[in-house]
Amino acid sequence: MSLTKALSKPAGSTAAPSPLSVNGLTVAYQKKPVLRGVTFEINEGELIGVIGPNGAGKSTLMKAALGLIPSIGGEVLVYGKPYKEQRKLIGYVPQRESVDWDFPTNALDVVMMGRYGHLGWFRRPGAKEKAIALECLSKVGMADFADRQISQLSGGQQQRVFLARALAQDAKLYFMDEPFAGVDAATEKAIITLLQELKRQGKTVVVVHHDLATVQDYFDSVLLLNVELQAYGPTEQVFTQERLQQTYGGRLAFLDRSFQVPAADSGKGV
């Protein structure tokens, strides 16, 4: 048992395995791949932004990495093992629109769902789970809304409930699918605080992100995606006008004026 484990690792590698290493991942819904040969390996303890135009496969990358949709090629390793064996290490925040918020339940109950993976198959969540869920709700500033029916929460508050649920999973690697989409300023601030807090605890967070203006403020590393991997690396190196033009095709003209993106080769001559 221990021998095969030792053999399966490359000889001489003493470094801890990456939280997420993706090798040649290819996904196709119909004939045309929506993700083609995506390969990258992320560093532990970083906040990583996944950036790309609509239809670039950002959400697909996340879902395939989580095993929610089948891939037609490539592999995904979470801390050196297939994700199936590492589910307890992974936390997930789906897009808010993916569920019906008129479901008969309250905020606390949704957050407790994050504990289900830690409970046995037939065990009901008890006082301990309730305490954890309440703590997670207060971390996103939603403690006062614990008993609130979820349909009576604002969009931003619903997003924060989803974040609290992911926190309750107590994972090491988090995937968040557009958590900033359509939220109010208070929620945006709450999410940023939370991301920083997770980073301080040494967790790794992968975030699908849409707003190019905030990328430099939020993320340590950036993954540029458009069906194929365009670039991956530290934000200051990868988040350049040139690379963004390449990722978004010609559709990024507005960037020239609106945002101060450091050009790759212009230096300080301006």
């Binding site: 095993g67 929610l68 589910r87 569920v99 019906d100 479901f103 769902m113 993976g117």
Partner: peptide
């Protein structure tokens, strides 16, 4: 019934 995607994520 509420969130099948999340359930799948939990395994």
């Amino acid at each position: 019934s509420f969130d099948p995607g999340f359930a799948r994520g939990l395994g």
